[in-house]
Structures are given as structure tokens and as C-alpha cells.
Write a protein that binds this DNA or RNA. Structure first.
Lengths: 391, 391
DNA sequence: CGACACGTAGTAAGCGCTTTCTGACGGCCA
DNA sequence: TGGCCGTCAGAAAGCGCTTACTACGTGTCG
């Protein structure tokens, strides 16, 4: 790491300040000087030192992306879209932002660790993807953490996860800066804290791009009900995740709206697999078939799980969709090519990621309320069909 | 970004040097002082400033991973494995390394840009995944670039791409530091440059974890030949990529070894699709069927392409494998669930990624010669079968 | 013709941390 | 009891860059 600003400056016969100004732009530099500097930069193959410039400028060009599982295309697609946004924002030359993709493995502790790491690197923005964990303690500490980050100027965007719970009630009144204190001016315990709270909110809130998991599951279940299914199994993901809960809620709501099943039966037909992978779908289906052999259709937590479901059914000697219908969720690229083609709900992962990237970069104005919910679409393929006459 | 070392120091009643030493370790600090400092750190929720510490310590805790397409599980799996290696290396506490995953989209220019960006962030190591581009100019400039980086102390590991060409012949003689100059001591034009070159090589070479693409393709073709196929189509990836070339070479070699096809026929049966995605497989197959309707088996550049191949065959009214056999490459997770299950070559992506991560971190000693080739395995599923009797 | 403004470039003060060098304080041996 | 050494903590000098602030010429206006 030899060549520094000073070297370039010496070579160009100017001061290091001038070199810095040429490279950073936004300050008038005479054409002749500028080109002399640029030549020196090229000759010396000078590369700016990131840490030094971040330190001096109190900023950085890192953008963090937290994903549950980088090997899962669901997250890969979102992360890719976010990163494209970074690239498209910049010219051909160097002043790019760098995306840091962090694999949390779905662990809330890891999530916190990475948040620290990113804070420490002074990330300019952080996009958190994937569902959150329901546990109230975690939710609260995460929310506090994120709000502290936004207070420090880091942009935070949630993508595919529900909006943060509102902070302690009352603190929200950032729009009424000096109107409230009339009531009890002297009694209030920690007026300083309140002041800080208000300033924090002013700095920028946590933005959200949410999927309509509930609505999607509702549509899927309705599709099956319309086909004539009455015994619909549900292989849910990990029960502590919001994504699982919301999808399941949509499913149950559709069932209820149809008067199709009492809560007891719905519960018997719902299996909570431990995760979102294929093997969970397989195991969950085995259990479901034991528990409720009358099942004529199975809804899976997502497409990957659905693949496991299909495999288990096949191994049990049941045909899809003749004997049992199967549906997934997400519409990942491989779903169209599965055997048979998977009926599923398409989530606009690409668009959501792009939008999250824009919000993180500040390229797109924050939506009113801070939350955008992107639309879903039912995709009917060949894995669902009416139940057999005998059923 | 308020609280600094000095704040912590003030609170703990020590100097900032002491705080730094407590946090960095490796220097004796009395137990009482240490715990006082740690308490202050906790109370103030202090987080080290990455840029500042990188600047002062002339090091950083970033590790870059370059991938062609982050949405492709092939790269996701490798990247995930590399990152796990980072996590497993560190204790529960903060001193993690941070992985920076960069999406090059397969573009050599982007690759170079990201390399600059990473260099600028003083990345401790960089893992480049995926095949390289054949273009000699690019190869040379990339190689030069990488060698310069290793010279600067950055560890470079190639994963799933062939080893770098050796540098200009003669410069390799790093083992003979001061033995050569006897020949023409005064005449040599740039003796200084030569000295630098030698020192660079000593710093550490570019390490490689390579896949046996050639061997895998060879095995696959042999499998088809053994089944009795004689008209084997090949939907290759982008022709300028090493991965494409090597797989194709393996295929042709197997054909030749079998005396199965003259080069002219092989060429007629080979279609170069533009990329590695599903649609390329589809289009390529349409072209192949036009060109050579006698085809009874199709080898695809990879599993994703194979999915497109299957779809095209299906749309053409041909059954897999009864009418045409299909095979992929890579054995991605979805391949087992495709319709029908894809015969393919399994590449140990996980292991390769982990290994690359270890090499990048220096956790594992460099293999002799700098290159490790990981094994492949033929996975036979139901997408391949003997050709029909009529064929 | 002097004063003022404007356009450029240099000076220098940090940014927050690490690390060398220096120093204080006991404890120990002779 | 004096000198030496080992242990631990502080002072301070940067790391390489950004960015006020300052300074120097011209061109221009009164």
C-alpha cells in the first residue's frame, strides 16, 4: 500500500489538498492542474485509501445487506437487485458504493453481531431482508438498535419483513416539537431523554418494503377451496418467524371465511416444520399423512418446502396433483420446472429489492408512513387440481 | 457516531491508549483496570470505529468475494461456505471479519472495478469465484492486477476458476534472490524493477481451488455413450468462458476416445447459448433440434440450462428420457426435484467454498503448487436412459 | 488608480485509533 | 537499604485523507 496522496501531489507538482479536490470533485480546480493531477494518478496507479477517507470525511461507501441464507435464491435475487441499484446509481468510474452481504443464517444473535460490524464500518445504509423473529425481547432490542442507527445517520430499510413496532407511545410526536409541554412542564421525569428521542425520529425512520404474505396465502387457500378441496394440509415454516405466522394467518382466514374448518381441524392439519428447506417439507409431509390421511391438498411454507412435499408424496405412492394437490410460495425460478409445475404465489423479489436499494441510497423518496407493500400474484400451474371424486 | 475511545477512557479514568489495549488484547493490562474499561465500554455502548482502526493499524477486516450472479445458487452456496468459514474462525465476540459479496454479472470490467473498490477498502483477502474470460488481454491484465494485490499483502484465492497463467517467464525465480546478476550486471535496463518483482512473488502467490470441469464432462459423455447414445447434442455456455471451454473439451475428448464422432459432427451438435440461464437452454435446444433432429441426448452447460432444455423438448412433444436424454452439471439443490430428476455431475461447492475461505484467511496452509482440484461425482438420475430402439 | 471580488491553490488542523517510547511504581536480590 | 528489573499506564506521534481557512493573483468597478 505504498502510493499516497502526497506522492501523487509531488509528482503533479501541487499540494495534496488539490489532488484530493480533483478526485472528490465539487471544488473548482483549473483544467490544466486537474489534468496534470489525473495524469499523475494514472501513472502511479493511485487508489484512494478507503479507511483514511472514511475517517476524514466521516462517511463511508458501504451498504450492508443482511440475508438469512445466501444460498437461497429468494435472498439471492433480492440481494442482487439491491446491488444493481448501487451500480446503476454511479457512473462508470470508481465512486461506487460497495455492498456487504451478510449471512445471518436466520439467527437473531448473528443479526445483531452483523449490525455491530456494519455500524463499526460506518455503513451508509443497511437493508435487512427476510422475516423477523416473533420473540418480543428480540424484536424490541432489534428495534431499539435500528432506531439508534438511524439516529446516527445510517439509513435502515427492511425488505420482506414487517415494519418495526412503533416506539414507546408518545415519543412519536416528532411533528409537534414544542406544543405538548403545556400539560405538565415540570413533573416529567426525563425531559432530556424525550428531547433526544424526538431528534432521533427527525433523522429518518426505518423504512419498510413488505410482502403481502397474508394476502398471498389467502389467495392460495381460496384457490384450493374453489377447486373443491376441504382437507387442506399446511406445512408451515419455523413457528417463531413472522413470515410463517402471516402466511398461516392468511390461510386460516380464508378457511374461516369459507366456513371450511373449525380451528381444531385446522390445527390438526398444520405441521410446523423446523425450517424453510426441502427436508422440512419432506418430514412435515410424512407427519401430516400420519396425522390426517384424508388430506387432498398441501400448502407449503414456500417453494423449496413444496419440493420436499412433492417428494414425500411421491415416495408415499401418491400422485401430484391427481391424488394430492400441492402449492408453494415465492415462485422461485425453479418452480416452473419442478415436477409438476408448482402452483404458487409470485412475490416481486426483484422489484422489492430494487426498491429497497433505492430507499437505502436515498434515490427514491420515503413512502408516506414509511412502508410500501408490494403486490403478489397467484400463479396456477399443474400441481393443483380438483380432488378426486372419491375424496 | 458520538462515543469515541476518549469518552470511554474518561469514563474509566484511564488513557485512551489503555482502552485500545484492552480492546485489542495482546498487551498486559491489570485485571482491575481491564474490568473498569470493559464496564465503561458496555455502559457507553461503545463500538470501535473500523475506518479509524484500519487506518491506524494498516489493516482491515474485510474479505471480498466476487461472484458472477448472486441469485444463482451455484455462487450462493460457495459464497455462503466462504462466509461460514469467517464466522467459525472467530469467537462469539466482535473481532469478526466481514464478507463483502460483489456481483460482477460476469463482466470483466465490473470485476476490475470491484477489485479496485476492494483494494481501496484494504480488503485482507479476495476470493474470485466462477470461470474466467478467455480473452488474453483480460486474462493478462487481471493476472497482473491480482499479482500486484498479493504483493501488497492481500490474499487472493480463485475458486472454481483455473489457475492464473504463470507470470512472464524468468521472473518466477524468486528462490534465487541474488544469483542471477552475474550475467550482465550493468547492461540490464531496469534492475530495480526486477528486484521489486522478486520481492512481490515472495509475498505469496495467487491460490486456486479448481473444479475438474473437464473430467466431469468427460464422465457425463461417457455415461451417455455407454447407454448407447451416438447423437449427443451439447448446449454450451458463453463461448468465451473457461468453464464452457473446459466442459466442452471434456465432452469432445470422451467422444474422440470412443471414436464416436468426427469433429465436424461434434461441431454441428454443439450450440453455444449466450449464457448460463434457463432461457439459453430453451433457445439452444430449439436450434439444436432444427440443426440435428437425430439427436437422442443433450448435455447442458449446467443444471439451470438443462431445465430450459427439458422445457424445450417438452414443448417440442419429446419426452425425457424416453425420446431424448438430458444431463446437467453442478447438481444444484433443485436438480433432484426437476421433472424428471436430472442426471448431472456433482461439484463439491460447499467444500470448495470452505477451502477457499480457509486459504483466504490463512487458516489452511497453501497446497504445493498453489492449486487444489476438488473431485467431482457423476450423479445418475432419471433424465437419462438408453436411446429408443428405433434411433 | 486603489479597492473589491472572484477564482485557485496552499496550509494545517484534525478524524479516531494504534503503537512506540517513556515513565512511575513496587518488589526483589545482594 | 540501594539498585535493578518487571509490570503496567500515559504521552504523543502518526496512519492518509478531507476541508475549513488563508493567501495570492487577476480582472473589474468606482
Amino acid at each position: 500500500m505504498a502510493v499516497t496522496l502526497a506522492d501523487v501531489a509531488a509528482r503533479a507538482g501541487v499540494s495534496s489538498a488539490t489532488v484530493s479536490r480533483v478526485l472528490s470533485g465539487g471544488y473548482p480546480v483549473a483544467g490544466a492542474t486537474r489534468s496534470r493531477v489525473l495524469r499523475a494518478v494514472a501513472e502511479l496507479e493511485y487508489v484512494v485509501d478507503g479507511p483514511a477517507s472514511a475517517l476524514a470525511a466521516a462517511s463511508s461507501d458501504l451498504l450492508g445487506i443482511l440475508v438469512n441464507d445466501i444460498a437461497d435464491p429468494f435472498f439471492g435475487i433480492i440481494a442482487g437487485a439491491v446491488q444493481s441499484e448501487l451500480d446503476s446509481g454511479a457512473d462508470a468510474s470508481v465512486p461506487h458504493k460497495l455492498a456487504v452481504v451478510c449471512n445471518t443464517g436466520g439467527s437473531p444473535e448473528r443479526e445483531l453481531t452483523y449490525l455491530t460490524l456494519l455500524q463499526r464500518q460506518r455503513a451508509a445504509a443497511i437493508v435487512l431482508t427476510g422475516g423477523a423473529v416473533e420473540d418480543p425481547a428480540h424484536r424490541a432490542s432489534l428495534a431499539a438498535r435500528l432506531r439508534r442507527l438511524t439516529a446516527g445517520g445510517t439509513r435502515i430499510v427492511l425488505c420482506g419483513r414487517p415494519p418495526l413496532d412503533p416506539p414507546e407511545p408518545g415519543t412519536e410526536a416528532a411533528a409537534v416539537p414544542e406544543a405538548g409541554p403545556v400539560a405538565e412542564p415540570a413533573v416529567r421525569p426525563v425531559p432530556a431523554a424525550r428531547g433526544r428521542g424526538a431528534r432521533r425520529l427527525a433523522r429518518g425512520a426505518v423504512l419498510t418494503v413488505a410482502f403481502d404474505n397474508r394476502g398471498g396465502a389467502h389467495a392460495l387457500t381460496e384457490h384450493l377451496l374453489t377447486l373443491g378441496h376441504r382437507h387442506i394440509g399446511y406445512i408451515a415454516g419455523p413457528s417463531e418467524r413472522t413470515t410463517t405466522r402471516h402466511r398461516l394467518a392468511g390461510h386460516l382466514a380464508a378457511l374461516a371465511a369459507h366456513g371450511a374448518a373449525g380451528p381444531d381441524r385446522a390445527e390438526r392439519l398444520t405441521v410446523h416444520a423446523g425450517g424453510y428447506d426441502r427436508s422440512c417439507g419432506y418430514r412435515g409431509t410424512v407427519e401430516l399423512l400420519c396425522r390426517a390421511p384424508e388430506t387432498t391438498a398441501v400448502l407449503a411454507a414456500n417453494d423449496t418446502v413444496a419440493l420436499g412435499v412433492c417428494a414425500a408424496l411421491r415416495d408415499a405412492g401418491l400422485r401430484v396433483p391427481q391424488d394430492v394437490s400441492v402449492a408453494g410460495f415465492d415462485d422461485l425460478p425453479f418452480s416452473a420446472d419442478a415436477a409438476p409445475g408448482l402452483t404458487t404465489v409470485r412475490l416481486p423479489l426483484q422489484e422489492a429489492g430494487a426498491r429497497a436499494g433505492q430507499l437505502a441510497l436515498g434515490t427514491r423518496p420515503a413512502p408516506p408512513g414509511g412502508t410500501t407493500t408490494v403486490p403478489h400474484a397467484l400463479v396456477v400451474r399443474t400441481s393443483t387440481a380438483p380432488p378426486r371424486a372419491g375424496a
